[in-house]
Design a protein around this nucleic acid. Structure first.
Lengths: 348, 348
DNA sequence: GTGAAAGCGCTAACAG
DNA sequence: CTGTTAGCGCTTTCAC
């Protein structure tokens, strides 16, 4: 029972006697021996760990706090586990401190086999050396210029177009959008999809119909106040996230507008929340779990085939129709409910 | 510039020349040198990583999928980061496979400096050797028998009593509870708090008023159906989680009951969701971020003072009154709305 | 104050 | 098929 043989037996090398292996494996189990990952990493240069950089600071784009990424993380966890990797969650952005180590350095420091970039502000100093040379990297919902980085995201443009078309097909012509931050890929693309679809169906874009939020519910509520305060308020509102849609819904009701009778609302993401609001929220479903799983799979493949092109994956989305969307109010220009609401809004 | 000196300089040892240090530090920055964590861990036996075991399998207690733990994780991430630790998220429970390595082994394998146990079924085989000898361990919302494990949880009993008292003080006497799984600490304790408070105020416990759910909204909805189907339905319902409360609310409205006029509903957790339902949900607030932060701090302290008793921390909770709770319907035994709802329920 | 040398626990070549 | 040897990149005595 020599030391090298043990290593071979436990790593399933084929050049080892069957009985010897049995003995070793069993003995290891009894002693519950745990090989040191550090030592193995040191020599093999493989850590079997994927780094996950998921922002969670208030200043940046929505990160771990946002329910959307929760499911992405579960997908990541599931698939990474299946591929034999654990996840190293880098603790908090230290973007603030300029002396903070760059993301690249933290990855090399820990010797991760791959990195998942989510919800980061890539313009920040943290990601100075993107792409991270030598470390397979996959970005979720980020625009990365480098061809060395795999990219995963939902079909944001198509989804936004889908939502807009849904409203248009219901008969809406005054269709507003509550968009996410410009600096996020999802924010930009969904806005683009909305614009594109309006153009396709020949409805002119009104600047006052584009309100900005930050993907959370408060932004949605404020945007809705602004929209209902317009002299010609929209009859349909597409929000770039379910949280914003829920906030908008809440505010609309507070202001006395009926949903969907006076104003239709549709979101994006398909969070659990969508079936818990009253009325339930129509939305565009993203395959959140699938996004995470795809990221893990992509990293795993990049490790196996270092020379292959990193994939750029766009996952399909689908329309989920619930109760918050319906036909626009009969073609009176300003239904009573909305007038009332806009008045109230001004008081606030 | 010798190799040992570099090590000393970068680790801030005091026995090094000031100018030498300066030179080294600057040079390291220029080359952006990243010391290998693996090598360092190998020799110092400190990894600066906390392991996080957060279940996410459908069979077990609610894990990473549940919104509650999202905020806990953020707290953990923030405070661990502040203390200089990153987080290793063990990928998926492998409880299924009996040959899977135990949690203890996975921790030793990775050489984590501490472990956070969350939402695990501690009766499972994975945690055979709890407590994990030699590894500081903190359990969140778990009942661990061992005195070697630190424990963090909210004041579940007090919180449940608070919710129950709130309903009682509003005038409710027919107070039901939608409880979580017995095998979770939160499930058991909140049920205990409810019982305790009923006893205190002298309202007898009715077995048919205790319905079981799994902390998610579906369970809440089904439980509400059952409750409204009773010949004498409750006028107040305390749900052991906000998700169940939201599901119950939804179902109550579907069945034609008005909330809070016909039936009051109060939850537990204080998720974002609570202010997005219609009506908004009264609840018992837990300091989710604080729980995570306390866990990280506890581990850090246990590392510094290995001989100190691991703390058992109970965080205070508070009542958040929103719109879903109010006075019970005037003392007619069976208000019309509820009769209608119970009828409908039977059809389903 | 700095360099030289040993060794953390493992894997990978190379002999036997 | 198995044992011996060297070395991964770092920290840490111990000399100088």
């Amino acid at each position: 029972v020599s030391i090298a043989t043990v290593s071979r037996a436990l790593n399933g090398a084929d050049e080892v006697g069957e009985e010897t292996r049995q003995r070793i494996v069993q003995l290891a189990a009894e002693l519950d021996y745990a090989p040191s990952a550090a030592a193995r990493t040191l020599v093999t240069r493989r850590s079997h760990v994927f780094g996950v950089a998921l922002g969670n600071d208030a200043g940046g784009p929505p990160g771990l706090q946002h329910p959307f990424f929760q499911d992405v993380l579960v997908g990541l966890q599931d698939e990474a586990g299946a591929q034999g990797f654990d996840l190293l969650l880098f603790a908090r952005d230290r973007t603030a401190s300029s002396s903070a180590p760059t993301l690249l350095n933290r990855c090399r420091h820990h010797g991760v086999d791959g990195v998942v970039l989510i919800a980061l502000d890539l313009s920040g100093p943290e990601i100075d050396t993107a792409p991270l040379p030598g470390i397979p990297c996959v970005a979720i919902d980020e625009d990365v210029q480098s061809a060395q980085t795999a990219q995963i995201s939902s079909d944001n443009i198509g989804g936004a177009a889908l939502a807009t078309r849904h409203l248009h097909e219901l008969g809406h012509r005054r269709i507003a959008m509550i968009t996410g931050p410009e600096r996020t890929k999802a924010g930009r693309e969904r806005l683009a999809g909305y614009r594109q679809e309006l153009e396709r169906v020949g409805v002119p874009l009104r600047p006052e119909y584009v309100q900005h939020g930050h993907f959370f519910s408060e932004g949605g509520a404020e945007a809705m106040s602004a929209l209902l305060g317009l002299s010609e308020p929209p009859t349909g509102v597409f929000a770039s996230s379910d949280l914003m849609a829920a906030g908008a819904l809440q505010r609309a009701l507070e202001l006395g507008a009926r949903v969907p009778e006076d104003v239709s609302i549709i979101g994006f993401d398909d969070l659990q929340l969508t079936s818990l609001t009253q009325p339930t929220l129509s939305t565009v479903r993203q395959d959140k779990h699938g996004i995470g799983a795809a990221a893990a799979r992509a990293l795993s493949n990049m490790l196996k085939h270092p020379d292959a092109e990193p994939p750029v994956i766009t996952l399909p989305v689908s329309l989920v129709r619930r109760e918050s969307t319906g036909q626009p109010p009969a073609s009176r220009p300003r239904p009573r409910q909305q007038r009332r609401s806009s008045t109230r809004e001004r008081e606030t």
